[in-house]
Simulated assay, not measured.
Amino acid sequence: MSKWDEIKSRLEHLGGSVELLAGGHKLSLMKLHDRKRIFVRVYVDDLVKMEWTEAKDEQPVHSEGRFWRPMKRAAYPKKVYTSAKRALGKKEADRMVTPRVIGFVPDFGTEGAAVAHLKKHFPDLEILEPKEPKA
């Protein structure tokens, strides 16, 4: 079983968690729910700070943001494309409706999405063994 399969299997069930060491930081991945939505949240050094969500030129401002999911949004919805193309031209209309990274969020929709992101950006991460509870 590869380390990627092991991470997925530990996050398979609600409440599942795994601790990793990547890029000099301790990552804690937990499968949580918020009423009807189930997601995987990534804690960096046991913290989630909203200032880490900032992006500049589609890159994270803070180094901790690179462990999170890039959130992409377009400046305008696609339904304004045809009218913008007539008014402003094709090049400007394309720029208006093309999604760009506007921030980074600590939540991934599935464990597979979280593993794919980590696999792409941190192929040399290590899985930390779970601590034994004290009796």
Rank of each mutant, 00 (worst) to 15 (best):
K3V: 01
K3I: 02
W4N: 02
W4H: 04
E6R: 15
I7H: 12
I7M: 09
L11E: 02
L14T: 11
L20A: 14
L21N: 14
L21G: 12
K26M: 04
H33E: 13
K36S: 15
V42T: 05
Y43T: 00
V44M: 00
M50E: 13
T53W: 10
T53S: 15
A55V: 13
K56N: 06
E58Q: 12
H62R: 10
H62I: 08
E64I: 03
G65R: 10
R66V: 00
F67G: 00
P70V: 01
R73D: 13
A74F: 07
A75H: 06
A75M: 03
P77I: 12
K78Q: 15
Y81C: 03
K85L: 10
R86K: 02
R86F: 01
A87K: 01
A87V: 04
L88C: 09
G89N: 09
G89L: 07
E92K: 03
E92M: 07
R95W: 14
T98D: 11
R100C: 12
I102T: 15
G103I: 03
F104Y: 12
F104V: 13
F108M: 11
T110K: 11
V115F: 00
K120A: 15
F122I: 10
P123G: 09
L128Y: 03
L128N: 03
L128V: 04
E132F: 05
P133L: 01
